[in-house]
Simulated assay, not measured.
Amino acid sequence: MPALTFSKWSPGGNTTLFFPLDGRSAAEQARLARLALDPQHLGGEQAGFVDPRQRRLRMAGGEFCVNASRAFGALLAFGENAPGPRQAALEGLPAPARDADAAKEYHYEARVSGWPSPVRLSARGTHPHWRVEAALRLPACPMRSLADGMTLVRLPGITHVLLNAALHPFPEDCETAATLLRQRLGLDGEAAVGAVWWRERQGQLDMLPLVHVRDAQTTFLESACGSGALALALSLFRAGGRRDFSILQPGGSALDVRLFDEGGESMAAVDGPVSMVARGQVWLPDDAA
């Protein structure tokens, strides 16, 4: 039962585990993630494998994840940002200088699984709380209407089915409903599929995402979903031309999505809070390592 180092993050509630990439195969990553995400071990909604020096993130199923990308930005900032006095005392480190600038910004370019171009990450704040924006160069993201109030949006690395909750209420058994939806639409071969129920009340958008990752064999009703928020923003932009959105997530915080042009290219940015939850070592069954 070897010890594995880990860190646990909450990008808007979408709890994410990071482990060192360390040359593990895709199959090993998927198996390790399934075990670690179990509540009897570390728990969480998703897992990724990181190489901070190379600024690389690979999700356990090879999927694309906006929130994990944002959490990776916080992890990179943590590597540069001196710990606070309490954490320094816990770890036996010298207390940081009083003038440590909590408003300092950190900027990175990272490669993340599922997305075809580098992702720009901007982190503001200090340990253990940041705000992190992920800016993405948008490739073609095909969409099609499946029915009134139901839209399929294909992003690189993940496909979302958007369901207007006014026309398609949230079902009692959401996991079974989402499984049947994937099968009916022929999406079982996709790296990851989300079913996103959304609505707008008194000018405030909110959403409820359920995400299935094929290779990791995980299905979670997530506390936040950055790619789902992006898919919803793209769909609403196509319908009405709006470019700026604040989308309330089930965990209680909002993700801010903006669509813009830069150098003749279409871009999107997703911004929101990220907090470190824990870091240390975990012991998993031998066949997971």
Rank of each mutant, 00 (worst) to 15 (best):
Q202E: 00
G92N: 13
H129Y: 00
R98M: 15
P285K: 12
R131Y: 08
Q204F: 02
W198D: 12
T179A: 14
G189T: 01
F220Y: 15
P128W: 05
I158K: 04
A74T: 09
F78A: 14
S235I: 00
W198R: 01
F19V: 07
H168R: 01
R182P: 09
G114N: 01
P139Y: 03
Q29I: 14
C141S: 12
L187Y: 05
R242V: 07
G280W: 08
A30I: 08
G226R: 00
E63P: 02
Q281V: 08
A233M: 04
P83V: 06
R214C: 02
L35G: 13
D261W: 08
Q217L: 15
R279Q: 04
G186V: 02
D206Y: 03
L255G: 08
D148Y: 04
G114L: 00
T16D: 09
G48Y: 11
R120W: 11
R56S: 09
L138G: 11
R34E: 12
P118N: 02
G251K: 01
D256W: 09
A82Y: 12
L259A: 10
L35P: 12
G79Q: 06
S122M: 13
P39L: 03
T219S: 11
P96K: 13
A33V: 04
T5E: 09
A74W: 07
L42Y: 08
P94R: 09
R144G: 03
G252W: 03
F220H: 14
I158E: 03
